[in-house]
């Protein structure tokens, strides 16, 4: 029930944001659309804890701030490498162990790695990920495990 309510609220916010017209007719059409979407989603049986991790919502904001800082640093690094040219880079492909237990934690970690420029997750098998990195230092940074610890903490708190 909590998930249904949060889904309806999110859809309502999306509609109000996108339309910008607040006449009764448009609002009524929005209400009808929301009801239809919630009905279809219930029939498909996809409203559950996995699609809407509500417990995460508060804690993840701090993680986003930290991730944003990481992304800015990685961007500066990659841009420097771009202008220095071919000799400055040393691409690596390695396998890294991850410590997350749930699927959601693994996905958050893999997506964070991909979102940071300079590292891309190529594959995720059981509790190992294959990472392609632009430089060896990126891999060492990942193996030091700062991001891993933060994602694990996020996962445990939810």
């Amino acid at each position: 029930m909590r998930h249904t309510i949060s889904l309806s609220l999110a859809l309502a916010a999306f509609w109000l944001l996108n339309s910008g017209y607040y006449t009764p007719l448009i609002l009524g059409l929005g209400l009808v659309s929301i009801i239809i979407v919630v009905y279809i989603v219930h029939r498909m049986d996809v409203v559950d804890h996995e699609s809407q991790p509500l417990g995460l919502s508060g804690k993840i904001l701090f993680y986003y701030v930290w991730l944003g800082k990481e992304i800015i640093l990685a961007n500066i690094d990659v841009v420097k490498k771009i202008w220095l040219g071919k000799d400055a880079i040393s691409p690596v492909l390695t396998t890294i162990n991850i410590s997350q237990k749930t699927d959601m934690g693994k996905v958050i970690y893999a997506n964070s790695i991909t979102l940071t420029p300079g590292t891309v997750t190529v594959n995720l098998v059981a509790d190992q990920i294959i990472v392609h990195a632009l430089m060896g230092e990126n891999i060492q940074l990942l193996e030091a495990g700062e991001m891993d610890r933060r994602v694990s903490r996020l996962e445990n708190s939810c």
Partner: peptide
């Protein structure tokens, strides 16, 4: 694979 990092920026 390296071009993909440039696109990521």
């Amino acid at each position: 694979y390296t071009r993909m990092h440039a696109a990521g920026v």
